[in-house]
Computed example of a mutant assay.
Amino acid sequence: MSKILVILGELSDRDIDWMIANGARTLVPPGTTLITEGKPLDALYIILDGTLRVSVSSLADKELGTITSGEVLGEMSFVDGRLPSASIATIEECLILSIPRRLVAEKLEQDVLFSLRFYRAITKFL
């Protein structure tokens, strides 16, 4: 089951409306690095359509796997605060909903029930 289905299953309709209202849908061209290993993230990403590759520098940027529609990227940085351990780049044109990290952090601080639902959804993957 994709991450987004689990997360949406935990969130309320109001939470989802907030994410849509505060996120930006963007067509990202092939070959674009969305997340760079070891660098802070500026957003929470939801992959709406397309395929991305996962790689790490210690393996000469060899492709370790792919990510497709329905996945969420960057959610773990809200849990453990660590920098990304892999780079993620688009293989083909991708449609991505990105929600600025600052806005998600503010929402988590201000809305206790959203925070509870968000973290509960993430712990289902741990």
Rank of each mutant, 00 (worst) to 15 (best):
A43E: 05
A121E: 08
P30I: 02
D80L: 11
I16H: 07
K62G: 07
L8R: 12
T33R: 14
I96N: 01
Y119Q: 14
R82H: 05
V28I: 12
E71I: 07
R53H: 04
D15K: 07
S12V: 04
A86W: 01
E10R: 14
D111Y: 11
I99R: 11
T90V: 05
N22S: 05
S57T: 15
G23T: 04
V112F: 13
I91D: 08
K124T: 01
I91L: 12
D17E: 08
D49G: 01
D42I: 03
I96T: 03
R101E: 00
K124Y: 02
A21E: 11
F78E: 14
M1P: 07
L116M: 07
T51C: 05
P40G: 09
I46T: 06
E75K: 12
R82M: 04
T66K: 08
S98I: 03
A24P: 02
I122R: 14
I122N: 14
G74E: 13
S55A: 04
S55C: 03
T68I: 13
I91A: 06
C94H: 02
I96H: 01
T123W: 06
F78D: 14
Y45T: 02
G23M: 03
S58H: 07
S87E: 05
D17Q: 10
T33M: 10
E63W: 01
I47F: 00
L108Q: 09
S77E: 14
A105Y: 00
L34K: 09
D61F: 10
S87Y: 06
L116R: 08
L41Q: 15
A21F: 03
I46R: 08
K107E: 01
E10A: 15
V6C: 09
L97V: 04
T26Q: 05
L83Q: 10
L52C: 05
M19P: 13
E37N: 06
D111F: 11
D111A: 09
D42S: 08
D13S: 11
V104D: 01
I91N: 07
I16G: 07
S57Y: 05
T66H: 09
D13R: 13
D111K: 10
A121W: 08
K39I: 12
V54H: 09
K107F: 01
E106K: 14
I16R: 10
G31H: 09
W18V: 09
G23I: 04
A89N: 06
G31C: 12
D80T: 13
Y119V: 14
R102W: 00
P29C: 02
S69C: 03
S57R: 15
I47N: 02
I35D: 11
L5N: 15
A86L: 06
L48W: 00
C94K: 04
T26D: 00
V112H: 13
I7G: 08
G65Q: 10
A105V: 02
G70Q: 15
E71M: 12
I47E: 00
V54P: 10
D49N: 06
